Simulated assay, not measured.
Amino acid sequence: MSTPETALSATQAGRRRLSYPMFALAVIVYLAIIQLGGLLMTELTGEDDFLSTRAVFYGMIIPLGVALAFTYGLIAYLGWTRPVLHDDRPTRPWVRVVPIVFLVAIVFGINYSALSDKGLLYTLVLLIATQFVGWGEEGMFRGIGVVVLRDHGLSEGKVALWSSIVFGAVHLTNGITHGANAIGQAIMVSLAGYFFYLTRRVTRGNTVNSVLHGLFDFTLLTGTSILIDQTFYLGALLPILLYPALAIVLLVKRHSIEPAPAHAA
Rank of each mutant, 00 (worst) to 15 (best):
L238M: 08
R92I: 12
V211W: 13
T81F: 14
R142I: 09
A245S: 07
V202W: 00
I248F: 11
L121V: 15
N174M: 06
M188D: 06
F102C: 01
G119E: 03
V98W: 01
A26V: 14
D49H: 08
A182G: 00
V211R: 12
V84F: 01
F70R: 04
S113V: 15
F141I: 02
S19M: 09
L31F: 12
L51W: 07
I61H: 07
V27D: 01
R16W: 13
F102Y: 11
L242P: 00
V29T: 06
P239E: 07
L220Y: 08
Y77F: 15
V147R: 05
L68T: 10
A69P: 04
N181P: 08
I144T: 03
V159D: 00
F132K: 00
I106N: 02
V189H: 04
S163G: 07
V101R: 06
V166S: 05
Y58R: 12
P83I: 01
L44H: 09
G38R: 10
T224C: 05
L8R: 11
M188F: 15
G175R: 04
S2V: 15
K253P: 00
V95N: 01
G235F: 10
S256Y: 11
D151V: 08
G205D: 00
D49T: 11
D88S: 06
G37I: 08
A69D: 02
P83A: 02
L40A: 10
S164M: 05
L227Q: 12
P83Y: 02
P261I: 09
L161K: 09
T123I: 12
P261E: 02
A245T: 13
T53S: 12
V249L: 15
V104Q: 10
D229N: 13
G134N: 09
G175Y: 05
L227N: 12
L220V: 10
V56Y: 11
M22E: 05
H255L: 09
V202T: 10
R96T: 08
T199W: 05
V27Q: 05
T123G: 04
Y122E: 04
V146P: 01
P261M: 07
R254K: 11
P4M: 06
I240Q: 15
A105V: 06
I28M: 14
Y243E: 11
S210L: 02
L241Q: 07
R16A: 14
A129P: 13
P261F: 09
